[in-house]
Amino acid sequence: MKKTRRHFIKNTLVASAAGFILPSETFGIINPTKNMSSIVGHGNFTYNVDKEWGVQDPSKTPVNDCHEMVMDSNGHILMTTTGTNNDNILVYDKSGKVLKSWGQEFPGAHGLSIMGEGKDQFLFITDPDSHKVWKTTLDGKILMTLSRPKEIDGYTEDEQFKPTETAILPNGEFYVADGYGENYIIHYNANGEYMNHFGGTGNKSNEFNCCHGITLDTRDKSNPTLLITSRASQEFKRFSLNGQHLETVPLPGCSICRPVIHGDNLYFAVIVTKTWDSWDGMLAVLDTDNKVVSLPGGDAPQYLNGVLQEPIYDGKTFRNPHDVLIDNDGNLYVPQWASGKTYPIKLNRI
């Protein structure tokens, strides 16, 4: 799956250089017209789509692949985007205005996690291209840098470490998911010192096929666990904090990025359903029983004998959505990968 993803990127760049014409739907980058007429989702999770929410002047605020978004305690929205000639972190307000941008140290900026309160909030940024993880302040001061964990025999070269995501515990300990590398989940203490690891590449219950995303699930406050995607296998897994496999939840047809929890519900960006060679994807909303209850950007979720049937992309809403951020009003913000350098869009909860 990783080779396929890179193959798609290479083909996209070649096509662009040859004058490949993008579809007429430009998501508001050129000659924007306000578009709030599209309604997506199902049941209690339906939304009006605003494709112009995050649109900027690309000559002033350029983006490439937009990967992930988090919200700080002031309601500001931070987003990672790739590139060597642009800032890799954009900071939006809720209206879609860019307040500032910073950081050109993270050209492959991918995962973005936030923790802490008020002035003590901090970020973790993963970059599989630079083979590093950074801890920073909200304005970009680097506090910690991690490279490949030499304590693990599975790594012999720095380039094998291609981290995609982090999950942070309240005590400052954190986990790094090496989703584009060796598929280990590495556990560190608050000082960035190696503690232990689990996982690895494979199809066993305690292994992963692209552990792209990880999050701490505290919905059961007495028993916090880790949710970890195995994206190429179209499933996610639950582990104890010490790395014991607890359950696997298949989502057929859904190549899911990272788990995002809001209230009692679990959200995923489904980056693709059928093929990496064309724009695709949707969002998935799951209840506490891990049943899909809404598929914004796709057809209504259907189950047959308890098994989710592969969803169908609506052909218009998204271009490879890579993450989803949920605000306190239940609105969704969605950055997109390999989408023709589009800016994030917003789904207003109905």
Results as ranks from 00 to 15, higher is better:
K346T: 03
V334R: 03
I125Y: 04
Q234M: 10
D93Q: 03
N74R: 14
I345E: 06
V14L: 14
I39N: 06
N265E: 13
T273K: 00
F174I: 05
L246E: 11
N35E: 15
K3M: 03
G172A: 11
I114T: 02
Y188S: 04
A109M: 07
D314N: 11
S38C: 13
T33W: 09
N11I: 09
G263C: 07
V292R: 01
I271S: 11
G28K: 05
N189C: 08
F106M: 12
L332R: 04
F106H: 13
N348C: 00
T61C: 06
V91E: 12
S38V: 11
A338G: 09
K346S: 11
T61I: 12
P344E: 04
P128R: 04
A167T: 05
L13T: 09
A300R: 00
L295G: 01
S230H: 05
M195T: 11
R349G: 02
P296T: 07
V324K: 08
K141N: 12
F174H: 09
G28L: 07
I29W: 03
R349D: 01
E193A: 13
L308R: 00
N223T: 11
I152K: 03
K132C: 13
S205G: 09
W276R: 15
L286G: 06
Q309W: 04
G181E: 06
S16L: 15
G330Y: 02
G330Q: 03
F124E: 06
I345L: 15
V14F: 03
G43K: 11
T26W: 12
Q104S: 15
E105K: 14
I271T: 12
G172K: 05
S16Q: 15
D158K: 11
E193D: 15
K60A: 12
D280G: 06
L123Q: 02
R319V: 10
K10R: 14
A300I: 13
F268H: 02
G103W: 07
I39Y: 09
E182Q: 01
N305D: 14
S240Q: 07
P250V: 00
E157Y: 12
R231P: 05
D299I: 02
E68I: 05
I256M: 01
H76R: 15
Y313V: 01
N223S: 14
M36L: 15
H322M: 10
